[in-house]
Design a protein around this nucleic acid. Structure first.
Lengths: 330, 330
DNA sequence: TTGTAGGCGTTATCAG
DNA sequence: CTGATAACGCCTACAA
């Protein structure tokens, strides 16, 4: 018995057929208590570790789901990813992680690479995918959840929110507070741009002008927010309402404003995005848009699980609520 | 031809044997140019996506490596993980992510669950594993890298640093600056505790006393740092040197100190751990211990790759340098 | 409740 | 350079 123990070894050791060992592992209640114990004992004694690669080939179920997110270097996607992973872990699924780095073309290649592994499900960040990719996904027959965005026609399932809606709400929030001058500091990736554009549109609808120095890097860091604020500070004549595409940018802007002696919220009112811990626990706590990332990850996992186990039909499109959490910066 | 195309479909479409298609995919240079083109064309036309589950069973190489880290909710492990993933991605490997949540027992179960997938390599956070797990890993014959810690006898390979050494260096740094009163705010997990203990030991060796309110949660957040500092502030009589087990705690402590009117570094000198962006880009920038997480992730990936492809021997134990980055808080 | 036969889709190996 | 054959280790389907 050289090499690693396989199911036949465990079966022989327990004096049963391989199929019985398989049952003990996968459907224990269809095996009599006595046999189950005997088999379990043999498994433990041999240190038999089932091979799910073989099992997956045979059953056509890999018990793996793939998750493609832009990055884990910024806190943005960590909450949903953590919740997603935790939730699937409980159901015996593993998460295969792929990082697209905000490059849409890289994402296409990653999706192909990942399908090669025959995942039972797929989590995608964003809902804007090329027709080629959508066809690929459809042909593969994998359940797909798109998160962190909203599309009228998801590829398959969607659990997200509308970025333009979020930023329009921020604009309304500022206007309701009496603001008449606006600025934005936003990253250049697709969804940050959607937030910037939504903000710009609503500000324009209200008949006001907007200062926008152009795209920051993706993902943006605190430093980017500081530099950007320092650069636009001179152009900010009068009391200005600033919307930042992430809390890191907002925190950087607030920090720089403090250095420059710009009063917050007196001269500069700031709203971020993400409700990262720093918006809550920093000083001053600052206003931001809160989306429940953990809930999104959990719901995404639950939807995939429903489809992967029952094949059950689930809501095709779930929008999770967002809210503006007003704090000391506005 | 119902269902998804398989290698036999592509082979038939190209008028070659399945094995030739396999070669085009895996060792293109062993196939003549003409055949290669014909096969490639057939693959594209059919939209054939190779099944690496089957391939993995046959070749006994899954081209998957598993990574077990405590959490991705704190920035601590994100840099190494991102670098690790990026590096392996370039070599055609996928990363299977598992989150142990700082529960050692959960880690044991995760390692077993993950071995079930027959990864070609394994990344573990920390180097303190039970004999049972070490045996399991040895029997599995998987290359293993342990990161983010140092052990005299790694399970297999190790790329990390010594936490006690780090914190002793911090204590020395403080002493060299003339400090005589010390405090620490540290989380309760194994490695944060190692940092706390290393600091305490060295402070004692210098003949000074230490204020330690006890373990904070793992992972610790900014809020935990604020609360902890508020709680110990009264006990901090005279100029104190504070070592925090993470930059989030340090930032929280600094924030609270500002609120309490405690002068930094005049009354309170603070050193964090991790060199997170906030230590650099916040205001004031604060002193911290920098360990090159990205390098660690990259080296870990390279070591695994060497073992997985060549079976080459590599350094069993690599210690990455750390350094104290002195900034405005000390 | 347990067992038998056959195949899941690919690649190692050896032959041509 | 290309092909035929036989695994890889397990599970579906059916039978006893």
């Amino acid at each position: 018995m050289s090499g690693v123990a396989k199911i036949t070894d465990a079966a022989a050791a327990a004096g049963v057929a391989p199929m019985t060992v398989s049952r003990v592992l996968n459907m224990p209640d269809r095996v009599s208590g006595a046999t189950r114990l005997r088999v379990q004992e043999a498994i433990d004694r041999l240190g038999y570790v089932p091979n799910l690669v073989a099992g997956g080939l045979s059953s056509r179920r890999s018990r793996v789901v793939a998750a493609i997110v832009p990055t884990i270097a910024s806190p943005m996607f960590n909450e949903p990813l953590q919740a997603f992973t935790d939730c699937l872990d409980g159901a015996g699924y593993r998460v295969m992680l792929a990082l697209s780095g905000y490059r849409p073309d890289a994402e296409d290649a990653l999706i192909h690479a990942v399908l090669t592994r025959r995942p039972d499900g797929l989590l995608l960040t964003g809902a804007d995918h090329s027709p080629a990719v959508r066809r690929l996904l459809r042909d593969a027959g994998v359940p797909v959840v798109e998160i962190w965005d909203a599309a009228a026609e998801p590829t398959d399932m969607l659990v997200g929110f509308d970025h333009a809606e979020v930023s329009a709400a921020v604009a309304d929030f500022f206007v309701a507070a009496g603001h008449t001058r606006f600025a934005t500091l936003a990253a250049g990736d697709a969804r940050a741009t959607a937030r910037r554009d939504g903000f710009a549109r609503r500000v324009a609808e209200h008949g006001f002008a907007l200062t926008d120095p152009g795209p920051l890097p993706s993902p943006s860091l605190i430093r980017d927010g500081r530099l950007a604020l320092a650069a636009v500070a001179a152009r900010l004549a009068g009391r200005t309402a600033l919307f930042c595409s992430s809390d890191l940018i907002a925190f950087g802007a607030l920090t720089e404003a403090r250095m420059l002696g710009i009063a917050v919220p007196g001269s500069l009112a700031v709203c971020g995005f993400g409700d990262f811990e720093i918006s809550r626990s920093g000083e001053p706590a600052f206003t931001t848009v809160s989306v429940d990332g953990a809930a999104m990850g959990r719901i995404a996992a639950e939807h995939l699980l429903a489809r992967m186990t029952d094949g059950a039909a689930v809501a095709r499109r779930v929008l999770v609520p967002f809210r503006i959490v007003a704090r000391a910066s506005t």
